[in-house]
Design a protein around this nucleic acid. Sequence first.
DNA 1: CGGCAATTTGACTATCCTCAACAGGGGTGG
DNA 2: CCACCCCTGTTGAGGATAGTCAAATTGCCG
Lengths: 233, 233
Amino acid sequence: MASCDFCVVRNRAICSALEGAELAALNAIGRTRTVEPGESLIWEGEDSILVANVIEGVLKLSSNTEDGREQIVGVVYPSDFIGRPFGGTSGHGVTALTEAKVCVFSRGDFDAFAHEHPALEHKLLERTLGELDRSRRWMLLLGRKSASQKLASFLVELSERLSGNGCAIDAEKPNRRTITLPFSRQQIADVLGLTIETVSRQFTQLKQDGILELPSRREVIIADFDALVAEAG
Amino acid sequence: MASCDFCVVRNRAICSALEGAELAALNAIGRTRTVEPGESLIWEGEDSILVANVIEGVLKLSSNTEDGREQIVGVVYPSDFIGRPFGGTSGHGVTALTEAKVCVFSRGDFDAFAHEHPALEHKLLERTLGELDRSRRWMLLLGRKSASQKLASFLVELSERLSGNGCAIDAEKPNRRTITLPFSRQQIADVLGLTIETVSRQFTQLKQDGILELPSRREVIIADFDALVAEAG
DNA sequence: CGGCAATTTGACTATCCTCAACAGGGGTGG
DNA sequence: CCACCCCTGTTGAGGATAGTCAAATTGCCG
């Protein structure tokens, strides 16, 4: 019943490399589970013992400085892959932001399976290369952008990654989009390398500029997407 | 004559996945070339048309903001892999910092070859996962560390990556290391997301603290490695 | 020895952080 | 159903860190 056949990310996750019997074999070593908001799947610094595919929900990857401040180093969405296959310890924790459904594998099982299935490794490689590109773009943001550029960039990327899952584009005005944030203000600050106060101030600034509307804490209406893109620098 | 048999990174680069005839086949589609300091191999935003292995030297991966400020998003050393296989455009340029020797492949050739050789793809996957880990550690640095922590972290990582190739450890005092920088002050600033003036001030501060000695612009003696690690936060 | 570029230093400024108080709103218990 | 409370977020004032602009210095090369 927990068959991959009904999996909503079946065609987008790395599993799309597999068919029939092979898919069934992968299915046999994995199991699905849900993760509650705030619950962690992997802890920073621990030996990497499990890997997973995200089926539903949003999770953060985060590291902490010695003095306890957090930096979110990645955000994963449905069909993304989580964990560190092939040895090593995880340099960051993985924690659910929303209720999430994931398909988990013990790392040993997954490593062995991957070795036997080059097509799966190939998909994983493509995904990892994409993730590396994304994280490098993020380094440009963290190193060189101002607070307002950071927030604007964040909202632009978020609206793209949430398409269909928490981001609605107005059919008549493609320039207008509604987002349901999976992040608290503090978490946005931790993504952008800012403080919560600065994030809050940038939100009100963008609202006053007429670029955003903020009906509630977790909802953002991008009233002028083009202007937001311009602001992103 | 340009045989892989004599290649100094033969056992560390992704080529180590191959033997005999397969290695010869890879050799047949690649060629070695040298790149002068400041010369670019790949430009930001262009279609990814070539990939390469680094044999010798140090190169930077960099992106620019719209207003022309630069962020170095990665630094590659001998045995590292360069480029974006499997489609997509390169999000960053690749430019030599020192004179460098690389083994280049046209991307199309490499992609096709990789598809036929899972062991090679596996090596590339492991390397890419490692690079992703490194870039995420760098995000913590960019987002959450102070200028002095940034410079200290940078020097610590550099001394580790240059071991044997520009970093000498004093046999009697393992706490003392001599580095020949492949970076100008401006480039260090571009790595750390700082300005050249701030980098310069942090250098003089570390010198005054007795942690560094600066015999010349391109030489750094870490007089107290442990203290530097502590400073890195 | 001169010239040029890289780096350092200095003075001032701006951005973002810190600390503190206040507001809102969602949920709970009366 | 309403009042209250607590948590999250907002706003304000002041301060610190790093950025900007400008000038001085170093050292590298011919």
